[in-house]
Design a protein around this nucleic acid. Structure first.
Lengths: 338, 338
DNA sequence: CGGCGTTGTGGGACCGGTTCCATAATTATA
DNA sequence: TATAATTATGGAACCGGTCCCACAACGCCG
């Protein structure tokens, strides 16, 4: 078994208190004893037990992070951002991947509670039955601050860092219209999710503002997945009258759209122009020049961790919602080449 | 502050021991008392402190996982596999992303040690100065089993689950030759890493076995990144005599290669055929039909976690190295259409 | 009906740290 | 040089659980 503080004390012929003082350099310790203790620590390769310390301190130094899918670059990037700040500030992360499964989310919440996390960052999956909400409320009631990162729900009662999906969709739509498209459509995400809904609204408002006629059949109701997007796009492309450009609500859906086009031998942007949401790094790297709405996901992670830390330091803060405005990256796929 | 076992004991008018027995259903507890205790637990929303339990138990129930980059699907998938098994078996994961930084790896190792992890899964970054190796040895000496997942190093002294890069490259090369290519090249990863080296060997041996002449200038020394791959490929494509097919050592490098081709207006596989390593899900989804060597990364994660658990149960096991043979997924990009 | 095994419960030590308090040793001050 | 202030160290309680052991209550058997 690993060496304990007692072993060190004995070997250095001091008390545990003294060793503890050396470890945290608190209180008075004679230089001579300090070096002696440090020597013993070195020699025995002693590393203090974070567990025991946490118990005594009542501070776990741990932040819980819940995401729907680590595999998705969208979330992986947020995690990167969170990690960076956590590292700097000396917090440990307990990361949970819920696989978009509400039940797993419940279990995770329970587990994190047992781990005595000091704060929680969560990108929530759709809250069936609102059990999550209860849990989050319980957390806050027990002085565990919660920060929401984007995600499917938005409870005003919690701090949150959000992406302005409305604005992103709005900007993209305007860009398409400005590029000269007279008929523009949208491929939406699952409308039960808040972001998808907001993007749709942004799209519609932009259309209205520009006085462009919006056809009901040009609103393709997808589900964030590539499969559905593929079918919807294909069907749409076979109509005689159809939009010349599309705003596409997620990177996965862009892929589905492209497959449909590739099967029909159609080219971007000649046969169908588009602007997507999220990065499409892979495609741009191979020179496909996909225009996108860049959501600044890493920044979402950083800001939310920072926010959490601030609240940890001062529980009385007003709840705050930071909303990040996405930037448009136009790379060519939005062009109107008719 | 959260309720403690003492609070429960008092409220239920029993001793802490009894509450503990209910919690772990161990020992004797009268049915009547049990329900009473459970009721109190429910009412006070009590959740036992994993920290205190760990201290007492001397069991953290935690496994450390170190990867170079969560953002890379290659590692993210391994994590998925690890997570699945860990969940089933009731282990918590402490995940560390080292950003390919050796120093961070050192710090992480130290931190995990303080957390009293019971075992370690590591995809190691190149071990400059071998400090990592020391650390890993120290772990094992202190009864913390270590399992290596693929990665840049391979120390026979530790358990490990590896991908057979040699075989993968070998199979891919044979496939290219069988497809009718007379001149085949390779885009290697950083040769200081074991996998890159093995892939190169697999390639060379396959060439020799088939009696295909291998030109030195057809071995393009890359570094896993897309940028270098782009330049190397472009240069190569401008030569009058050049290979008609390439084995490409990583997904990132395939992207660089494609950019080069796209800029030169060249087509796959007419102007240059290829087989890549790792998945290229994104590209295949849009109908690009990229042939690849599928490395079964999720399985690597699962198997290594399982291995770790077995060793946790029995420290005396012989060290074992599982080597997974990759499968070839031919989708068309390897064809010889001349 | 006394002794014995089973069932049920409480007391207290322990896990490995931190921290408060008392006391000892040293130095400064009057 | 006696006394106060400062520096240095140890003792012991505590954090919130687990678990061993002692003991009480109960039923059963001879």
């Amino acid at each position: 078994m690993p060496a304990t503080i007692k072993d060190i004390a004995k070997a250095a012929k001091v008390s545990r208190s003294t060793v503890s003082r050396v470890l945290n350099d608190s209180g008075y310790v004679k230089e001579e004893t300090r070096t002696r203790v440090l020597a013993v620590i070195e020699e025995l390769n002693y590393s203090p037990s974070a567990i025991a310390r946490s118990l005594s301190n009542k501070r776990s130094n741990t932040i819980g992070v819940i995401v729907p899918d680590i595999n998705n670059p969208f979330f992986a990037e947020m995690i990167k951002g969170v990690t960076r700040v956590a590292d700097e500030e000396g917090y440990r992360l307990l990361l949970v991947d819920t696989d978009e499964d509400n039940e797993k989310e419940q279990l995770a919440l329970q587990a994190l509670q047992e781990q005595r996390i000091e704060g929680l960052l969560i990108v929530s999956t759709p809250a069936k039955g609102k059990r999550s909400l209860e849990h989050l409320r319980w957390m806050r009631a027990h002085h565990i601050p919660v920060v929401l990162l984007d995600g499917h729900i938005k409870y005003d009662e919690f701090d949150g860092v959000f992406i302005d999906h409305y604005q992103g969709a709005h900007d993209a739509t305007i860009a398409l219209i400005k590029a000269g498209h007279k008929r523009v459509g949208i491929l939406t995400g699952k409308l039960s999710s808040r972001p998808a809904m907001e993007r749709l609204r942004g799209f519609q408002d932009a259309m209205a503002e520009c006085g462009v006629v919006s056809y009901d059949e040009d609103i393709l109701f997808g589900d964030y997945g590539h499969e559905k997007a593929y079918h919807l796009t294909k069907e749409m492309l076979l109509r005689e009258k159809r939009p010349s450009a599309l705003f596409v609500s997620s990177n996965q859906m862009v892929l589905g759209m492209m497959r449909a086009m590739s099967e029909l031998g159609m080219k971007i942007p000649q046969d169908l122009a588009f602007i997507g949401f999220d990065q499409l790094e892979t495609l741009n790297l191979i020179g496909m020049n996909c225009s996108t709405v860049d959501a600044h996901t890493v920044e979402v992670g950083e800001l939310s961790m920072k926010r959490l830390i601030r609240r940890l330091e001062n529980e009385k803060l007003e709840t705050a919602h930071t909303v990040l405005r996405p930037d448009l990256s136009l790379r060519g796929s939005e062009a109107n080449l008719k």
